[in-house]
Amino acid sequence: MSIDKSMSVLIVDDYKTMLRIIRNLLKQIDFNNVEEAMDGAEALGKLRAGSFGLVISDWNMAPMTGLQLLQEVRADARLKAMPFIMITAESKTENVIAAKQAGVSNYIVKPFNAETLREKIEKVLGHG
């Protein structure tokens, strides 16, 4: 069974350049159905209104951080099983543990490369 690359992917980052980079990298691995949100609240609104197969979020955002977004997603009955990848510069052990405890599906530390992104997506979607 192959990954459904037509699925909607929501990328969340308060930094437009990063959204652009991730979108282009996803496009290169054939994920073309990509939506963007620039903070946690906007992302939550889109997730509740839409139908996404994967969330890729930054951590360091305001006012709602990526960790808080993850917690909200896991607390939402309809969204709680949503695959959620954190892409962040937060590389301290305490951060990784906090994300794992909040239910993160995988964790990518910046700077990252396309291969790591592809590998983690495959793993999260059950093909790694």
Binding site: E90, S91, K92, E94, N95, V109
Partner: peptide
Amino acid sequence: SLLNGPQLPAAAMDQSDI
């Protein structure tokens, strides 16, 4: 708050550590 930001290379975990 856990908003530590990027770590200097000597203190940072790389992807394999994570």
